[in-house]
């Protein structure tokens, strides 16, 4: 990373709406080719931060540079290099999927043929003749992403691309997003889904109340938390008392459905359980970003 200039540089960004400090001193860099996630509950200031990065809003103070240039005011040199998928999918009314993407592509001087290829990339070639009003939520999101990418931008902003989608549609979209990143583009994503950030992002910034609480690769954040591993089996498989005797320093709880053992050394506990043939309904869960959030804010994560 040293010596390489960052694709995005955000310094001490602030934006207030009246009394509400929506973004309150945010700084971070995004390196070329990185998949960067801004994570946080609704109202954390993610979208406002993103909109200032895109040049849609003027920061009260602080600065944003993309490829070394300021996106505000509307900067025509930057616009062809960035692709934006908005939170609400912005489509022309009563146009088919093919007409939508061709219209957007032509705004960047991209040919209709090239635009059609993008429909195939997001798996919508069968829906090309359908109007956007007739597409499902997941299909609209994919079309919206295709429209954002049709001109081959180096930097892509995605604002909550999977919100409102069913789990299957979300997974499908993740595959599309991984491909985009694998093509070498820099991607910035906001999401309130912790699993999404964990699964997709090289690096995340966890935001709450307009500030970044912590940032780094999801695995590092989780590892640094040094949280115990939770081993659960079905209640009745083993008594709480017996469980406590499996090893030293175990925390055992039983909610009547499963018995959970919290430990920092899961291996001996698991083998002891196996010896007793007490593995019915076994699940092993390490710490997640959810635990990181809990640790940082002292409260449960609620999207």
């Amino acid at each position: 990373m040293h010596g390489m200039s960052p694709t995005i540089k955000v310094e001490e960004l602030r934006k207030a709406y009246g009394e509400l400090r929506a973004v309150d001193g945010v700084s971070f860099d995004v390196q070329p080719g990185e998949f960067f996630g801004i994570l946080g509950p609704n109202g954390a200031g993610k979208t406002t931060t993103l909109e200032m990065m895109e040049g849609l809003r003027k920061p009260d103070s602080g600065s944003v540079t993309l490829f070394g240039e300021s996106p505000w005011p509307r900067n025509p040199r930057l616009l062809p290099r960035i692709g934006v998928q908005l939170q609400a999918s912005a489509f022309f009314e009563r146009l088919t999927a093919r007409e939508q993407i061709r219209t957007f592509a032509s705004l960047y001087g991209v040919s209709a043929r090239k635009a059609d290829e993008w429909l195939a990339v997001v798996g919508l070639e069968d829906m090309a003749g359908k109007r956007n009003e007739d597409l499902s939520g997941g299909q609209q999101q994919r079309l919206s992403i295709a429209c954002a990418l049709a001109h081959g931008p180096d930097l892509v902003f995605l604002d909550e691309p999977t919100s409102g989608l069913d789990p299957q549609a979300r997974r499908n979209l993740w595959d599309v997003l991984r491909d985009i990143s694998a093509q070498g583009r820099t991607v910035v994503l906001t999401t309130h889904y912790l699993d999404e950030a964990e699964s997709l992002c090289d690096r995340v910034a966890i935001m709450d109340h307009g500030r970044i609480l912590e940032s780094g690769p999801p695995a590092t954040l989780v590892r640094d938390l040094d949280a115990p591993t939770r081993i659960s089996v079905e209640t009745g498989t083993i008594t709480a008392e017996a469980a406590r005797g499996l090893a030293d320093g175990l925390e055992v709880s039983d909610d009547g459905v499963s018995l959970t053992i919290a430990t920092r050394t899961p291996a001996p506990v698991l083998s002891a359980l196996a010896e007793r043939d007490a593995l019915r309904g076994l699940s092993v869960r390490g710490a997640t970003l959810e635990d990181v959030f809990l640790h940082l804010t002292g409260r449960e994560y609620r999207a």
């Binding site: 616009l79 960035i82 934006v84 957007f104 960047y108």
Partner: peptide
């Protein structure tokens, strides 16, 4: 409607 449906915003983000 173009403003409400964010089409204007989308156009603003394109070099048009």
């Amino acid at each position: 409607t173009w403003r409400q449906k964010k089409i204007l915003r989308r156009l603003r983000l394109s070099p048009v």
